[in-house]
Amino acid sequence: MPIYELHCNGCDTDFETLAHSSDETIPCVHCGSADTHRYISLTSYRHADHWMKNMMSAMHKSQERDKLKKELEAQTV
């Protein structure tokens, strides 16, 4: 279930609530009024560069860890 941002015209407050997308009216959690309307929620996206930097960093750390493992194995043999 998505979180919806709503405004109540009865008590003039904003609130968030979990609701089914099929729910036509969502009552106010403060006063119980059915005179509410949904806001269009803002969304957040991460740019692909952010993902790429994280992945490259993780890959580099993994390669360093593998290199150290091989060095330790070579020393113990």
Rank of each mutant, 00 (worst) to 15 (best):
P2G: 05
H20P: 08
S41N: 13
I3L: 05
H30Q: 04
E64I: 10
T43D: 11
A74V: 14
S22Q: 06
A19G: 03
R46D: 08
P2T: 05
L42Y: 11
C31V: 00
S22D: 02
C8D: 02
Q75I: 15
A74Q: 10
Y39V: 09
K61Q: 13
M59V: 07
C11S: 02
N9M: 07
E16F: 06
D49S: 03
C28M: 00
L6S: 03
M52Y: 08
T25C: 03
D35G: 07
D14M: 07
N9H: 08
D66W: 12
D14A: 02
M1C: 07
S44D: 15
Y45M: 11
H7N: 13
H20F: 05
Q75E: 15
L6E: 02
T43P: 06
C11Y: 00
E73P: 10
C31M: 01
H60S: 14
N9G: 05
T25H: 12
E71Y: 12
T13A: 03
A19S: 02
I40H: 11
T25Y: 06
H7A: 10
K61P: 11
H7C: 02
T76V: 15
A19M: 05
H30E: 03
H30I: 04
K61D: 12
D66R: 15
T36G: 00
T43N: 09
Y45K: 10
I3R: 03
K53F: 05
D14Y: 12
K70T: 13
A58Y: 13
Y45H: 11
L18G: 06
M1R: 06
E73L: 09
C11A: 02
R46Y: 05
D49T: 03
A48Y: 09
W51G: 01
D12C: 07
M55A: 10
A34P: 10
G32E: 00
A58K: 15
S33Q: 02
D66H: 09
R46C: 05
T13E: 04
A19Q: 03
D23A: 08
A34W: 10
S21D: 07
G10Q: 01
V29E: 01
E73T: 15
K53A: 09
M56Q: 13
N54A: 10
V77G: 14
E24C: 03
H37L: 06
V29N: 04
C11L: 02
T76M: 15
D49Q: 05
S62P: 07
Q75V: 15
T17A: 01
D35F: 02
L18M: 07
L72G: 08
E5T: 08
H30A: 04
S44R: 09
T25W: 02
K53D: 12
H60Q: 12
Y45T: 14
S44N: 12
Y39C: 02
E16D: 13
L72M: 14
K69H: 13
V77R: 15
Y4G: 10
T36F: 05
S44W: 11
T43Y: 10
